[in-house]
Simulated assay, not measured.
Amino acid sequence: MSRIVYVNGAYLPAESASISIFDRGLLFGDAVYEVTAVIDGGLVDFHAHQQRLRRSLGELGIDFDPASIDLMGIHQGLRDRNGLDEGLIYLQISRGVADRDFLQPEGLEPSILLFSQALPLIDSPAAERGLAVITREDLRWGRRDIKTTQLLYPSMMKTEAVGGGADDVWMVDNGTVTEGSSSNAHILTADGRLITRGLSHDILHGITRAAVLDYAREAGLEIEERPFTVAEAQQAREAFATSATAFVMPVVSIDGQPIGDGRVGESVRRLRSLYIERSRERLTF
């Protein structure tokens, strides 16, 4: 059965869906997006994702109010039409369609598209073995806090990492780790402190990051929101990444050096289990 997608007000079979070749999302990356996880048929942190979507639209000056359409209903419609019990729903909003010009036109009708992906999120083999990451210089544009579709550089770096036998990349700016190709980066020190870069223009304000930090505080962990170096990460007791697509994902080596004993640590296992448990308690149906 064909996957059903949503494009500008219509549910369509994926093979017959299309957007204009003059869409500014295609021509300029002039678009924002969100990815919402689905587990047990429910949406994870849906409202937090919509709040960030509103912020991203505002930062780019895209004239669209997410409340003007029933985005929750569209997510639910895609879930139901595709029989999605576990996986992801991707939402993208571009500035709209206009002849190619670097000047951002006013008064465009934004283009809206959504699609689903069926993926195993909870029983993830990567969560059992942990990730090997490499580090590379962070050469992305300076407004990494806006969730835009300008993803070419992290895509290049992840492709390089996998081509070299690793799983992902952690990017480094002025000697300190910013984030992964599509995730926030965290370490646990020998004395049990959780260290992660604070919110700024340097990193995406991760929805999963925020939830995990809240749950970690409730569990009694001391949190330090500050930059950390690659050397600190390599000397950490445990390391992990967070994202809507991977939840809490252990990192077991950085640039070939094992983290701790090179195996998934118990603290990260507990954080992952706690995140999944709490997410299940807060699902939107």
Results as ranks from 00 to 15, higher is better:
Val5Ala: 10
Val7Gln: 04
Asn8Met: 04
Tyr11Phe: 15
Pro13Ile: 00
Ala14Trp: 12
Glu15Gly: 08
Glu15Asn: 05
Ile21Pro: 04
Ile21Thr: 06
Arg24Trp: 02
Arg24Glu: 10
Arg24Ile: 05
Leu26Trp: 09
Leu27Pro: 03
Leu27Asn: 12
Asp30Phe: 12
Asp30Glu: 10
Glu34Phe: 04
Glu34His: 02
Val35Pro: 05
Thr36Gln: 05
Thr36His: 05
Thr36Asp: 02
Val38Gly: 02
Val38Arg: 07
Leu43Gly: 04
Val44Ser: 06
Asp45Ser: 15
Asp45Phe: 14
Phe46Cys: 01
Arg52Val: 03
Arg52Ala: 01
Leu53Pro: 00
Leu53Ser: 02
Arg54His: 04
Arg55Ser: 10
Arg55Ala: 11
Gly61Trp: 06
Asp63Ile: 04
Pro66Arg: 09
Pro66Tyr: 07
Ser68Glu: 11
Ile69Phe: 08
Leu71Ile: 12
His75Gln: 01
Gln76Arg: 14
Gly77Asn: 03
Asn82His: 03
Gly87Leu: 03
Leu88Glu: 10
Leu88Asp: 07
Ser94Trp: 06
Arg95Ala: 14
Arg95Asn: 10
Asp99Trp: 09
Asp99Tyr: 11
Leu103Gly: 06
Gln104Pro: 03
Glu106Asn: 12
Ile112Pro: 00
Leu114Arg: 04
Leu114Tyr: 12
Ser116Arg: 05
Leu119Tyr: 13
Ala126Gly: 07
Gly130Val: 02
Ile134Met: 14
Thr135Ser: 08
Glu137Pro: 14
Leu139Val: 14
Leu139Tyr: 08
Arg140Pro: 11
Arg143Ile: 05
Thr148Gly: 03
Thr149Gly: 08
Leu151Arg: 11
Leu152His: 09
Leu152Pro: 06
Pro154Ser: 09
Pro154Ala: 11
Ser155Ala: 13
Met156Phe: 13
Met157Thr: 14
Ala161Met: 06
Val162Cys: 09
Gly164Phe: 09
Asp168Gln: 03
Val169Trp: 05
Asn174Tyr: 11
Glu179Gln: 03
Gly180Gln: 01
Leu188Lys: 03
Thr189His: 01
Arg193Tyr: 00
Arg197Pro: 01
His201Arg: 13
Asp202Gln: 10
His205Val: 07
His205Arg: 12
Gly206Gln: 05
Arg209Thr: 04
Arg209Pro: 00
Val212Asn: 00
Tyr215Gly: 12
Tyr215Glu: 15
Glu218Tyr: 00
Glu218Asp: 15
Gly220Asn: 12
Gly220Met: 14
Gly220Ala: 14
Leu221Trp: 11
Glu224Pro: 04
Thr229Gly: 12
Ala231Lys: 13
Glu232Thr: 03
Glu232Asp: 07
Gln234Leu: 03
Glu238Val: 08
Glu238Leu: 12
Glu238Thr: 05
Ala241Asp: 00
Ala244Val: 00
Ala244Asn: 05
Thr245Ile: 08
Ala246Lys: 15
Met249Ala: 05
Val252Ser: 09
Ile259Glu: 13
Asp261Val: 02
Asp261Ser: 11
Val264Gly: 13
Ser267Met: 11
Val268Asp: 00
Arg269Cys: 14
Tyr275Met: 06
Glu277Ser: 14
Glu277Asp: 13
Arg278Lys: 15
Arg278Gln: 15
Ser279Met: 15
Ser279Lys: 06
Glu281Ser: 11
Arg282Ile: 01
Arg282Met: 10
Leu283Asp: 10
Leu283Ala: 08
Leu283Arg: 04
Thr284Arg: 12
Phe285Met: 10
